[in-house]
Nucleic acid binder design. Structure first.
Length: 302
DNA sequence: CTCCAGATCC
DNA sequence: GGATCCGGAG
């Protein structure tokens, strides 16, 4: 792959168009523009893993109001945490976030560490989240690699469709090659590129006609070869899967106003296939999302 | 139907 | 690398 020097005309042109677009079009999400602590930024990133930002915002406000810092979240009950997670999906993220809060509270005196190696060692924090926190919360110059940035950079700079699947070495090299040298600019670059991918340069139907990069986009110049052919991930069903059943089970628990257990008989009415139901009860119990009682009644863990 | 600001396990 | 884990907006 050809190198793309930072000072190449193409990169300068992309930057000069992307930054003004960001100034005019950045969504006013509650954790942006210096209004959140580093911990708040981390919470927003964890909530946003596989969940759209627009859905995250109201949950984040309620969550941060209840538990403003890691110490507060560390002291919450599991039942409160799972309930507050609501319908964000993938509730194991909520448990990991609380585990993360405990580590931060106990080992880091309630302050997020600022080294990549320490961040990525935290529960529920992978490469993306660690990089995002470093860039967005601490202003560190680091390339953020997510599905949006991979798609935008691959299209605009290389003129080819992003393949999807796990991030490749080439993806990382490209993101690092294009990342502005100045830390403040790199922060804006990361956020603006992600925002563009989320709102304009989308996977299936990009709105090229309103894209600030249109005139300089190599993907447009090449005639958008293979648009949306690269699957972002293997197709995932939902209906009939254990994920649906697990969701139904947790919804039954959440809907209880008190901490009263849910009887197995009620669960069977929600999902008559008892073998799958039992499997899901076992896995939820193993995950620590429910407590399985001897008669197959369930309740939230303490 | 599609896709999502991923992490984790195998 | 592949599979699993949720749920809603478009």
């Amino acid at each position: 792959m050809a190198d793309l020097p930072l000072d190449s005309p193409r990169v300068v042109a992309l930057k000069s168009r992307l930054f003004p677009w960001w100034d005019d079009n950045a969504r006013d999400l509650p954790w942006r523009f210096g209004r959140a602590t580093p911990w708040g930024i981390l919470v927003s990133e964890v909530m946003s893993q596989q969940t759209q930002m627009s859905r995250v915002a109201p949950y984040w406000i309620t969550w941060m109001n209840a538990w403003p810092d890691a110490r507060a979240l560390a002291k919450a009950s599991t039942a409160e945490v799972i309930t507050a997670w609501g319908h964000l999906g993938y509730p194991r993220r909520a448990l990991r976030l609380q585990e993360c809060a405990r580590v931060v509270a106990e080992q880091y005196d309630n302050r997020l560490p600022q080294r990549y190696e320490e961040l990525i060692a935290l529960p529920g924090v992978g490469d993306y989240t660690a990089s995002a926190v470093l860039s967005f919360a601490f202003g560190t110059r680091i390339a953020v690699i997510d599905t949006n940035i991979r798609r935008v950079l691959s299209r605009a700079a290389l003129g080819v469709e992003s393949l999807g699947g796990a991030a490749t070495v080439a993806d990382r090299k490209l993101a690092n090659d294009l990342l502005p040298r100045d830390s403040k600019e790199s922060n804006v670059w990361n956020q603006a590129t992600m925002e563009l991918g989320a709102t304009v340069c989308t996977a299936k139907n990009p709105q090229c006609e309103i894209c600030p990069l249109y005139e300089k986009c190599n993907f447009v110049a090449a005639g958008k070869p293979g648009l949306a052919e690269g699957r972002t991930r293997p197709r995932q069903h939902f209906k009939g899967t254990n994920r649906q059943v697990r969701g139904l089970i947790l919804h039954a628990l959440r809907s209880k106003t008190d901490m009263e257990p849910v009887r197995y008989q009620e669960l069977v009415k929600l999902w008559p296939k008892s073998a799958q139901l039992d499997e899901c009860l076992m896995s939820l119990d193993a995950d620590g999302l429910i407590e399985l009682l001897p008669d197959k009644a369930i309740r939230f863990p303490k």
